Amino acid sequence: KTELCRTFSESGRCRYGAKCQFAHG
């Protein structure tokens, strides 16, 4: 995971959680 998850960085939450293909910091 190298690319940051935009949804997580903007809203602080992501519906994919740990399964998200993007990094959550």
Rank of each mutant, 00 (worst) to 15 (best):
G12T: 04
Y16R: 06
K19M: 09
C20E: 04
E3S: 06
F22G: 13
R13N: 14
F8V: 04
K19L: 04
C5F: 00
F8T: 12
F8W: 10
C14A: 03
C14N: 02
L4S: 07
R6W: 03
C20R: 02
G12P: 00
R6M: 10
Y16P: 07
C5Y: 01
S11V: 12
Y16I: 03
E3P: 05
G17I: 01
K1L: 02
A18C: 05
Y16D: 13
C14R: 02
R15M: 05
L4E: 11
K19E: 14
E3L: 04
S11P: 03
Q21M: 07
E10N: 08
C5G: 07
G12E: 04
E10W: 00
R15E: 14
S11R: 09
T2M: 10
Q21F: 05
R15V: 05
S9T: 11
Y16N: 12
K1C: 08
A18N: 14
A23F: 10
Y16T: 02
Y16Q: 08
T2L: 06
K1T: 09
T7F: 12
L4R: 06
A18I: 06
A18P: 08
Y16V: 10
G17C: 04
S9Y: 08
E3A: 04
H24N: 03
C20A: 02
H24E: 02
S9F: 08
F22T: 03
C14Y: 02
G17E: 10
Y16W: 12
F8C: 03
G17P: 09
G17M: 00
R6Y: 02
Q21W: 02
E10D: 08
T2H: 08
R13C: 14
T2F: 11
E10F: 00
L4V: 12
G25P: 11
R6S: 07
G12Y: 02
G25A: 09
G17S: 02
R6K: 13
S11Y: 08
L4P: 12
G17W: 01
F8N: 15
G17Q: 06
K19S: 10
H24Q: 02
G25V: 11
E10H: 01
L4W: 03
S11F: 13
C14P: 07
L4G: 06
L4A: 13
G25W: 05
S11H: 13
F22R: 07
G17H: 06
E3Y: 12
F8Q: 15
S9C: 04
G12M: 03
Q21N: 12
G12C: 00
C20W: 00
R6V: 08
E3D: 02
A23I: 12
E3M: 09
K1A: 07
Q21T: 04
E10M: 11
